[in-house]
Each structure stands twice: as C-alpha cells, then as structure tokens.
Design a binder for these strands. Structure first.
Length: 370
RNA sequence: GUGGGUGUAGCUCAGUUGGUUAGAGCGCCAGGUUGUGGCCCUGGAGGCCGUGGGUUCGAGUCCCACUACUCACC
C-alpha cells in the first residue's frame, strides 16, 4: 500500500529525504517526475525514460479522457499496461487543463463544464467524475479536482475559488472506491498568505495520504512563490509527502526542496528540449546558437546521460536546427536526466546534512542569484 | 548566329497607370517556454533593384547599349 517514510530532515533548511512506498515500487524523495501527458513522454520510449533514472511519471486525466477515453485504458489493463511503464504513475485530475485550455467553460458548485479542445464537444467534470476516470486509468497517485486560480486574481474570487476547491477535495475523497490509489488534495489560495494558510489547514485536515500545492508558478514572482511555500509547508503533515505542482526550473527545485517540498513535476524539461534548450550545471543553453557549430564537447561535461556520453554539442545543434526528431530525443533525455540527477544529489546532500551548502553552490554555478 | 524570356535580400520570388524610408516566404542571428492544445511564439540583421547611359520634377518600374543566365530554331 501507500505510505511515506520520512528518513532525514536538514538541520538548517526545511529539506527532507524520504521514501514513498507505492504498489508499483518505492520512490526516493525528493523526486522530479517527468510529464507524459497523453501516456507518453514526448520523443522518448519508456526504456529511454527509465534510463534517465525517472522513478515515477505523470499522465493527464483531461487528455486521456478525451483521447483515447478512460474505458480504453481500463480495457488495456490500466495505464501501466497500456503504456508499458512498470513503475509508479501519477495522474493529474485535469483541473488545470480545464482552466487553462478552455476559453469556453463554466464553473459551478457541481463542477466545471467545458468544451473539448479536440472537437468542441461539451463535457462536465465533477469531482466524482474526475475520481472515477482516474480510477479507470489506474495510477498509483491520483489528484483531487481543483481550480487553479489564475494570477493575478482578486482576493474575494481567490477565496471563493479556494473554498470550492476544498469542498471538491472532500467530494473526491468520498467518491473514491479503489483502495490501492493514493488521493492527494491540492492547496490553493493564490498569492494571499492568509488564504494559503487557511487552505493548507483545510487540505491537511482531510487526512489524505499526500498534499499538493497548486496555483503557483502561474506568472507571479519567484520570491512570491517561495513566500507562499513558506506559509504552506509548515502547516502540512510532516509525515505525508508534499507535491509542488508544475514547478521544475533547477533553481525552483532547489528552493522548493529547501522549503520542505518532496515532489515536483514540470513540462519545462521536455518542452524546452524539443525547442532546442539544454538545462546544464552551468545554466541553460540554447543549442541553436551559432557558437556551438564547431563545439565538439558534450552538452554538459558533468552529466552522465546517454546524450552527454555519446554526442557533441555541434551534432545536437545540427539535429535541432534541421528539425530531426533525434535532436528532441537527445535533449529530452538530457534535460530529464539532468533534473533527476539534481534531485538525487540533493537527496545525498540532505542525508549527509550538507544541503544548505549544496544549494548555494548549485545556484551560484548555474548562474542564479539566491 | 537568329528570335524570345529572365536578371530585386544568402535562396525562391512579389513589386499596381513611374510617386514617401523597396516587400514576402524560407534561410541566417538572438530571445522566450514552469500541474504540455508536440515540432511553437517574439524580435533582429541583411538589398549601388545585373552594368552604363537616356527620358522625367521623380525610374526597381519607360527607352537604348552592354553583360550574364536560359529556352527555341538554324
């Protein structure tokens, strides 16, 4: 079953190391989770994803509900069998997509009505339905339906929306019938400290197996996001995993862990890879740049990924500029491995109680101002 | 050799009856991308308009010569 084992806490920051036990295996935290929205990490085979050291993948309820449909995934034997991924999977509820992809939507107490971005057909997502679909998909961790409040939003709307998200989370919990899936609630509250605290208390009080923090990294300043994390994490059960949704730049990973976050997911690694950007230990690099044309060194000399062990910057630049699929594949492998590796090193540092120094070193060498 | 066509940005081309600072696509250069509507978005550089002369207030646009390429026929 699903449990979280807290192994070590940093003596100077809020950083923690732990182990998540799931039906499909253990996950060492802190962890970076690559995104495979439509049951595929774009440009990679599951074998390639596994070689990056990824311990768990994300998939998306909204996208899989529209195509191919939850019933087909269920018929296939669930997501793990369907996509041939034997390790843990987390499905996002689709709340974010409903609110970010659809101009035509209507939010009510019952749920949210929206038009499919695929064919314009009308759909109603309720907390109960979001859980039902996720039960059919069969991930190890499932998410409550929430409203990701846009930034900026006025206080009153943020509060109204947040309270509804709390009620929806409770309905999700009641609707759940499968016992082998861990349901996480999601803290909202925008950029208002008091609402964030209120939301953290309310979500934590539901007693779910994990707590997520949503509605951040939606346009606000990083300092604001960090400030919100500092309001929220101290109020969440220390013996349950904390998941910061959608956040994944290297500096945010370091700062998030420092504030007690255990899980992260982000499309940045895979999306920017397809557009030609490499995340490296010395900051990000635009591999389309002419200065790499004659550069026959690896993407990141400090990286041990398949791309860095076997290919040069000049070659990858060529692939990216030519639009070759292999360019996207190699950069995706690298960006994911880089992020997974960063988390592994953070974990080592936490276990050795030298995380604070580790964070400073990395922020400095990657060119971030802390 | 004769007749026709074409020479405008790195490439392929548009440029109204002559009228401000000559445009597009691609390419090139750079930036962006944070719970993914995959191969996208934004910005920038770059042109003695084949050469020389003429007509005109004014020529990428009209006229002449030259030149290069190209097609057809000898």
């Amino acid at each position: 079953m699903f449990t979280f084992e807290l192994i070590k806490q940093c003596s100077q920051t809020g950083a923690r190391a732990g182990i998540l036990h799931t039906p499909h295996g253990d996950i060492k935290t802190p962890v970076f989770m690559p995104v495979g929205t439509r049951a595929a990490v774009k440009a990679l085979t599951p074998a390639e994803v596994e070689e990056t050291g990824a311990q768990i993948l994300l998939a998306n309820t909204y996208h899989l509900y529209l195509r191919p449909g939850a019933s087909i995934v269920k018929e296939a034997g669930g997501l793990h069998a369907f996509m041939h991924w034997g390790k843990p999977i987390l499905t996002d509820s689709g709340g974010f997509q409903v609110f970010s992809l659809n101009a035509l939507r209507e939010i009510g107490e019952e749920g949210v009505t929206f038009k499919s971005h695929m064919d314009g057909s009308l759909h109603l997502f309720t907390p109960e339905k979001a859980v039902q679909i996720q039960q059919d998909l069969g991930a190890d961790i499932i998410m409550a339906l929430d409203e990701c409040t846009p930034y900026p939003s006025p206080y009153d709307y943020t509060k109204t929306s947040m309270e509804r998200t709390h009620r929806w989370a409770e309905r999700c919990a009641r609707a759940q019938t499968r016992e082998d899936q861990a349901l996480f609630g999601i803290v909202q509250g925008g950029t208002y400290p008091d609402l964030r605290r209120e939301s953290a208390r309310a979500i934590d009080a539901l007693g779910l197996p994990g707590n997520a923090i949503g509605g951040l990294s939606v346009g606000e300043e990083k300092q604001t996001m960090y400030a919100m994390l500092e309001e929220v994490t101290p109020l969440l059960d220390a013996h349950k995993p904390r998941y910061l949704m959608g956040v994944g730049t290297p500096d945010c990973l370091l700062e998030g862990v420092a504030r007690g976050v255990d899980m992260f997911d982000c499309v940045l690694q895979s999306r920017t890879a397809r557009m030609g950007t490499a995340l490296t230990s010395r900051g990000k690099r635009n591999m389309r740049n002419a200065r790499f044309a004659h550069d026959f060194s690896p993407l990141d000399p400090a990286c041990d990924c398949y791309a860095c062990r076997n290919f040069t910057r000049a070659y990858i630049r060529h692939l990216v500029n030519m639009g070759e699929i292999l360019g996207a594949t190699l950069l995706t492998i690298h960006n994911i491995r880089f992020s997974v590796s960063l988390m592994e090193e953070m974990r080592e540092a936490i276990l050795a109680d030298r995380f604070a120094a580790f964070r400073e070193e990395w922020l400095a060498q990657m060119g971030y101002v802390s």
